[in-house]
Simulated assay, not measured.
Amino acid sequence: MTKDNRTTEQSSLHDNLEQKSMRELLVAMNAEDKKVPDAIELIIPAIESFVKSALERMKKGGRLFYIGAGTSGRLGIVDASECPPTFGVEHGLVIGIIAGGDSAIRKAVEFAEDDTEQGWKDLQTYQINTNDTVVGIAASGSTPYVLGALKSANAAGVLTAGITSNAQSPLAEVAQHIICPVVGPEFVTGSTRMKSGTAQKLVLNMISTALMIGLGRVKGNKMVDMQLSNNKLVDRGTKMVMQILAIEYDEANQLLKTHGSVRNAVDAYQQNKD
């Protein structure tokens, strides 16, 4: 796909934005955003195929890596950083990597995404191996940093996937699993932090949550291994224990504080009852 043919670079369906009222702008943006879930629905089989393959490797001790540049890299880091507090997994199980390093999370690093070698170098610092999985995230599907990383990962026997908003992109040719929600032209032409970014966030939520459920980190519909890192979460955990065990708040709260997690509190209570 040439750059001129990329969906993400096509002219917006809306024009003269500076002449519209604030209400008109917001309504039009929301109308475009509504297209994102429909685009994702069309590719659920592709997401399913990838998650099943990744889960097999993670059950063998493999890790999940997200790698991207700019907005794509930041979204990967956000999803990775949310897995330990939400599901109680170690910080090294899901890892987000961004072109330009951690400083690029807050401030763009010029030309970092154009380095075809650095992505694989960044992955190698984690002693990446054949049980691991790498997801390249690039709305354009042509980011050199991501493409280079996935090519090297493939050669090393690592499972790879790519998330892009452009069909028939270079990323689609490189990734073993391609996840491509085609959301159409952006509201502001070329601004992939909008619909494409929203699609990436939703897909990443689906991938990590489905994997954590597959790894046994959810029971029923509850985050039984979540970290109790503030009063709100302690209260939420207490109410989970109450509901699961049909006991009063104070007893549930004491169990939770004693055993450190919803899962451990419930297991300890049930073992004492047996």
Rank of each mutant, 00 (worst) to 15 (best):
K3T: 12
D4R: 06
N5M: 11
T8G: 08
T8F: 10
T8D: 08
S12Q: 11
S12R: 13
S12P: 10
L13A: 14
N16Y: 10
L17Y: 10
Q19N: 12
R23S: 14
V27S: 10
K35L: 14
V36C: 01
V36K: 13
V36R: 07
I40M: 02
E41N: 11
L42M: 15
I43S: 05
P45W: 14
A46W: 00
S49A: 15
S49V: 01
V51G: 05
S53V: 11
A54L: 10
K59M: 09
K59E: 15
G61L: 02
G62T: 11
L64P: 05
A69I: 02
T71S: 15
R74S: 12
R74W: 07
L75C: 02
L75T: 01
E82N: 07
C83G: 00
C83N: 03
C83P: 03
G92E: 12
A99F: 09
R106V: 02
A108W: 04
A112T: 03
D115A: 07
D115P: 07
T116W: 06
G119S: 08
G119N: 04
W120K: 07
K121R: 14
K121P: 11
Y126V: 09
I128G: 09
I128W: 11
I128A: 11
D132T: 01
V134T: 07
A138N: 02
A139Y: 01
G141I: 02
T143A: 10
P144A: 00
Y145P: 01
L147R: 00
G148S: 01
G148P: 03
L150I: 08
L150N: 01
S152E: 14
N154I: 01
N154W: 08
A155V: 05
V158W: 07
V158I: 15
L159T: 09
I163Q: 05
I163T: 03
T164L: 00
Q168Y: 08
P170I: 06
E173H: 13
V174Q: 14
A175D: 07
Q176E: 13
H177F: 15
H177W: 07
H177R: 03
I178H: 03
I179E: 04
C180A: 12
C180I: 14
P181F: 07
V182L: 03
E186A: 12
G190R: 07
R193H: 02
K195E: 13
K195L: 04
G197S: 02
A199W: 05
Q200M: 02
V203D: 08
N205P: 10
I207D: 03
S208H: 00
T209H: 06
M212N: 01
G216Y: 09
K219H: 13
M226E: 15
L233A: 12
D235H: 11
D235K: 11
R236D: 15
G237Y: 06
M240V: 02
Q243G: 15
I244D: 10
L245H: 07
A246L: 10
I247E: 13
A252D: 09
N253Q: 14
Q254Y: 06
L255M: 01
K257T: 06
H259R: 05
H259E: 08
S261M: 09
V262C: 10
R263F: 10
R263L: 12
A265R: 08
D267I: 12
D267A: 14
A268S: 13
Y269Q: 06
Q270K: 12
N272W: 06
N272A: 12
D274P: 01
D274I: 13
